[in-house]
Design a protein around this nucleic acid. Structure first.
Lengths: 116, 116
DNA sequence: CAGAATCCAACGGGATACTG
DNA sequence: CAGTATCCCGTTGGATTCTG
């Protein structure tokens, strides 16, 4: 009985935690952006090329939101014309496990679908 | 050079894999539903109560989509009135790592926000 | 109990054109 | 290059009501 209560409560906390994350990383693209920047620093145009299908509008909006949440950092370089570099923050890099687990499952899933 | 190419290519595949998953688990609620059902079988009304904030419409829509993708199973029981039980499939349970990693990060994040 | 149906607002997200 | 602005549509998602 006690165990059931604690399991139920723990489950509720889990749901809440997951909901927090899904809220922070909402939309189609944020996780991909994070994963990309976990690999290496990238510029706006690099990301646009690397992340197939994303539009400029969504990219800049998502970058802004991720920056606000301190998951990524925006560096403007003194070049002509301006170059802007995005990189993962230390805090953002704590998401690396998360992105790699997602990617791993995605690989397996794709294989399964292909095998069909 | 070879290494850079392979890293870039690997990164592209990762992005694609992540995009697949984000497509499959799109919306605010699906991951929470999966996580819930990883704990135990649940009925429609249970899920509605457990997952705070979800509406009936979204719950049934998401359950349907998850069922189509064979991540969960719907069992209708011969009772009066009808009872319906949802449970995770074997395939769906391969998402357990994913949900727990997300939840873990969510817990830490919440702590950080609280502290911050 | 387990939904389906309807209505409606808000947001996501693509295309295109424009700016410094 | 690195965005911003505008237009526009489809989807998401909540509230409420209805059904077997």
């Amino acid at each position: 009985m006690e165990k059931e209560i604690s399991q139920t409560k723990e489950c509720a906390n889990t749901i809440m935690a997951i909901h927090d994350v899904m809220d922070l990383l909402n939309g189609k693209w944020k996780v991909s952006i994070i994963a990309c920047l976990c690999c290496k620093k990238m510029r706006y145009s690099d990301l646009l090329r690397e992340i197939k299908g994303i539009s400029g509008k969504m990219l800049s909006r998502d970058l802004k939101e991720l920056e606000i949440n301190q998951l990524i950092k925006r560096n403007v370089l003194n070049t002509q014309p301006v170059t802007v570099e995005y990189e993962i923050t230390e805090y953002g890099s704590t998401l690396k496990d998360l992105t790699s687990v997602i990617a791993d499952w995605g690989f397996k899933h794709r294989k399964k679908i292909m095998a069909g």
